[in-house]
Design a protein around this nucleic acid. Structure first.
Lengths: 152, 152
DNA sequence: ACTGAAAGAACTACTCG
DNA sequence: CGAGTAGTTCTTTCAGT
């Protein structure tokens, strides 16, 4: 299926940290030519190892200073309930991430709001009215550190 | 501080959907010249609204098929305890995200592993040995949907 | 202050040896 | 795999509104 060598991993590690680096700059750092790096990146893209390229926005500077994680337990669980819930939650713009999980809760939502008052509005009018919602647990984000994670 | 107009927001919305779009392509879609778009993007970058541009990897294709969210409650809480915990957890490569939160738990960790057996190893040898760890709750990720989130 | 036109530099994406 | 290259994009300069 997909077999990566050490050079692939070094390229991925560099790009995960900063995707704006050019193939030629990477080549200089890794001791490779620009086409060599470019071909590897294209291969990793076509193989699906590189799934996409996302812009990282500072939500605080955009006026959304509050981020809350919600653990949601459904009252009724069945295929229809899950589909209904996911469809309804996808229509809420304040919901940034929808994670279907196994454990004490069924879903974990990442919700952003302008402030606590705005979050209460989202919670009461949007979240609590979702179809099949049972228990809800909230955790306010204080700070966050993202790490590259293992490559191979 | 940072005041965004409607054009900035349209640019951000387009780039969040697809960060690979060129300034000239964006200009055509928004009715602006290529330098005008490029200058705005550069300004948003320098202001920190655009925090970065990261590669989105398919962890499954990299051989890390298991993602688990861990809620961690510290047994002893104090500034030193938090610092110690954060420093120690940052040294674990399998930890992708460290979120300091307010609520039932003190931290949320996103941990990736090759399989369940590998996750057990990480949990027992890495996580449970962290300084000050009390209760730990685990949720296995089944599926995940990321949404653009609100811009303004 | 922000726009667009123009132009040079750098990069992408590809072909060929 | 690297050298070379056509086409594209980035980045700056300059002048207009």
């Amino acid at each position: 299926m997909t077999e990566l060598d050490d050079t692939d991993r070094r390229i991925l590690r560099a790009l995960v940290a900063d995707a704006t680096q050019s193939a030629s700059a990477l080549g200089r750092r890794l001791g490779l030519s620009q086409p060599a790096v470019w071909r590897r990146i294209r291969r990793l893209r076509s193989e699906g190892v590189i799934a996409g390229q996302r812009l990282d926005l500072d939500r605080e500077r955009l006026g959304f200073g509050v981020t809350v994680f919600l653990g949601v337990k459904l009252a009724t669980k069945g295929r229809v309930s899950l589909d209904d819930f996911e469809r309804a939650v996808s229509a809420i713009p304040e919901v940034q991430t929808v994670e279907h999980i196994l454990g004490l809760f069924d879903y974990r939502l990442r919700v952003v709001a302008r402030d606590i008052a705005d979050f209460e509005r989202v919670l009461r009018r949007r979240i609590m009215t979702l179809p099949g919602v049972g228990d809800v647990e909230a955790n306010v984000l204080l700070s966050e550190e993202r790490r590259p994670g293992p490559i191979g």
